[in-house]
């Protein structure tokens, strides 16, 4: 009987030996962990050799850091809120109020995900910039000497650009969630006497909650780390963490502070990413097959 349990000769199970792990580990180490370790080391040692927390103390207490953290958080939160609101409205229209070309439009919005983010910032300067189309036509139409709109070179310009760029990241999961809401559910709800508002609140939105949370936390992560848009718009006084790292390292050659900031930024990103994963797995596990 015992022989039944033995593996058949010549059909040995594939058992990866310990040596298999070396090549991927080496590549990962060389490309990823080593630079990270250098940054981490630099942030503590600061070129002086002995590990110290003094670098952190001086960066964390600086006005520059406080201002950058504040801008990062405010811009990320407002942009994410904007993405959620705009994404929800657009997805609802695209999914439930079919109009000619709505599918094509959904595709086009979807391809925005593939575009580099700073492109939108560039396009915005052409449209809303001081010499952009909008200002030029307004000046001509209203006989003004100065461009009337200058929101672009402020926090609001950054937020508007980020909302435009990242809304598709919310719409993609939302449209997927809406496509799973059965038409029959909506029909039956309306035959039972529910109006559009009740159907939205009790049938459609509950189905969209996981998508909103997942899309929202992804947006939060991406907007926290956004660099291209902030740099391209170049709004006066709007310095976020990634931009501050760039300024410290490239313009002020203060590598130690740049490394400290980088470590803080990485920690922030990783915690947001865990939030995103946790949201996904919580809903994936809780209502598998439902969302």
């Amino acid at each position: 009987m015992a022989s039944l349990a033995l593996p058949l000769p010549g059909r040995r199970a594939f058992r990866p030996g310990g040596s298999w792990i070396i090549p991927p580990a080496a590549v990962l180490g060389a490309l990823f962990f080593y630079p990270l370790a250098l940054i981490l080391g630099e942030s503590f040692a600061g070129g002086k050799g002995a590990a110290t927390l003094l670098n952190y103390a001086s960066v964390l207490t600086s006005v520059q850091f406080a201002s950058a953290l504040w801008h990062t958080v405010v811009i990320a939160l407002l942009a994410t809120a904007g993405c959620l609101a705009l994404g929800l409205v657009l997805s609802l229209i695209l999914a439930f109020i079919p109009f000619p070309g709505s599918r094509v439009l959904a595709r086009v919005i979807d391809t925005f995900i593939a575009l580099p983010t700073f492109l939108m910032a560039l396009a915005f300067t052409f449209i809303y910039g001081t010499a952009g189309i909008l200002n030029a036509s307004l000046m001509q139409a209203l006989h003004l000497g100065l461009p009337p709109l200058d929101f672009l070179y402020s926090q609001w310009g950054v937020i508007l650009a980020e909302v435009t760029v990242y809304t598709p990241f919310v719409m993609r999961p939302l449209l997927a969630a809406f496509s799973l809401v059965e038409r029959a559910e909506i029909e039956i709800a309306s035959s039972l006497g529910a109006g559009a508002f009740r159907i939205m609140r009790q049938i459609i939105l509950p189905a969209a909650v996981p998508a909103l949370l997942a899309g929202g936390s992804l947006c939060l992560l991406l907007t926290t780390n956004e660099f291209g848009i902030v740099l391209f718009i170049g709004a006066k006084g709007v310095v976020t963490l990634p931009l501050l790292i760039y300024t410290k390292a490239i313009q002020e050659f203060d590598y130690t502070s740049a490394c400290v900031l980088a470590v803080i930024n990485v920690c922030l990103s990783l915690s947001l990413y865990s939030l995103y994963r946790a949201t996904l797995s919580w809903f994936g596990g809780r209502s598998a097959g439902l969302v």
Binding site: A184, E185, E187, I188, A189, Q202, I203, A207
Partner: peptide
């Protein structure tokens, strides 16, 4: 209807 279309939430 055929697949009942109960409100899942």
């Amino acid at each position: 209807v055929q697949n009942y279309a109960l409100f899942p939430h």
